[in-house]
Simulated assay, not measured.
Amino acid sequence: MSNPNLNFRHLYYFWVVAKEGGITRAARRLGVAVQTISMQLSLLEKAVGKTLFAPQGRRIVLTEAGRLALGYADQIFMLGEQLQEVLSEDDVGQNMRLTVGISDSLPKLIAYRLLEVALLMPQRIRIACYDGEFEALLADLALHRLDVVLTDRPVNPGTSLRVFSHALGDCQISFFGTEPLAQAYREHFPASLNGAPVLLPTRNNTLRVRLDQWFEMNGLRPNIVGEFEDSALLTTFGRSGLGMFPAPMALAADIREQFNAVPVGELADVREYYYAVSAELKIRHPVVEAILSAPHTGVFGKEPGKNVS
């Protein structure tokens, strides 16, 4: 039986206990007595008609109902924090807010190009960007902490998260390097890569998988002098001349300007793919809609693809 008078203070105490991992720690964080927390939890369980915590030795753990309730509580209190943040702004009601997760493997110049459409909209847009690991960003997206995630890979079809991938396009990959490196290795490329110093993404990166396959197919054994999970750190080391690095050919002008690096040679059949991931199949945020519907011809040289999951 539903309870229209659910007490959100009780729910908040439950949420803090779950986050802190125990009643004592929750009481310390909230500045109240342990007995107060216990009483609030009992009242909440009575209101919903379910046991939310179960004893496990000297600890308490969430029941199945408790885990379900925690998911909803996460969304409720995250939205509450966002509400407070939005209402505290001086220009409340004048800006449309877009909260974006950017996968750490996605080239930041590509992320900027994909978000440029938001800057051209007639409304005033306030963008908040968060860089992080792919799986962590998906979890935040599923909890509606983010409006969209920009990444270089689609969501695994077997994921339990209710999130959806939208293909935006792809780019030809080339190796870039400082002028001295380009002069030394451009001739006879790609055979010149044998023993040449290169900087690569780490092995959990989708582009790295394609690069390793390409090296193997062409019988190449470059000297890997650095591996980086963050694409921005990789290009920063590339600017120093430590080694050549892979990047989208479409960004050649930006890479020359920002990193003083030039193309050494294109990698035939190696491309990088880009996706927007949303929490709902039918997009409702107008800025996310604009990102998905934009042609992105300046980035990819072709129209974006259709939804892939």
Rank of each mutant, 00 (worst) to 15 (best):
V264F: 02
E280F: 07
A276Y: 01
E64V: 14
L70N: 09
Q75S: 15
N307V: 10
L200K: 15
A290S: 12
L109R: 04
A33L: 13
I255D: 00
A27I: 05
L220N: 11
P180I: 05
T51W: 10
D91I: 01
D230Q: 10
E20T: 12
A139K: 11
T51K: 15
G158P: 00
Q82G: 02
P154R: 10
E116Q: 12
S103I: 03
D170V: 09
V149W: 00
G238F: 10
V61K: 13
L62I: 11
T159F: 07
L79N: 14
V86N: 11
I283D: 09
L79C: 11
P246F: 06
A268H: 06
N95I: 07
Y12G: 09
Y72R: 15
A47W: 00
S105Y: 09
F77W: 01
L119V: 04
Q40P: 01
A47Y: 00
N307W: 07
N204A: 06
I291L: 14
V308Y: 07
F228G: 05
M96R: 10
S160C: 02
W214F: 13
I76Q: 08
G21H: 00
R239Q: 09
G21I: 00
V155F: 00
L211H: 10
A294S: 08
D131G: 08
S38N: 15
L62N: 07
L233C: 05
Y274A: 06
E227M: 06
R271K: 13
T297S: 08
S105T: 08
L146S: 11
D74Q: 13
S309Q: 03
Y274S: 05
S240N: 02
I110H: 04
V308T: 15
E303T: 14
L52N: 00
T63K: 07
L281M: 09
G195C: 08
Q94R: 02
Q82H: 08
A290T: 08
T206D: 12
G101R: 07
E179R: 04
G241S: 10
S293H: 13
L220V: 11
R97Q: 10
R59T: 13
K302C: 14
L193W: 13
G101L: 11
M78Q: 14
L119F: 06
D230M: 07
V163H: 02
P286Y: 02
W214L: 14
T36S: 15
D140G: 13
E64L: 12
A290D: 03
L98G: 04
L242R: 15
D254Q: 10
I110A: 07
V198I: 12
L119A: 05
G80E: 05
L114D: 00
E89Y: 03
S231G: 09
N156R: 06
A136Q: 06
A65D: 12
F245Y: 14
I110C: 05
R162C: 14
R58I: 04
G31N: 10
D230H: 09
A139Q: 08
S165I: 04
N95H: 09
G265T: 06
E229T: 13
F176G: 01
Y12S: 07
G132F: 09
R210V: 04
V225L: 05
G49S: 05
S278E: 03
A191C: 04
L199Q: 02
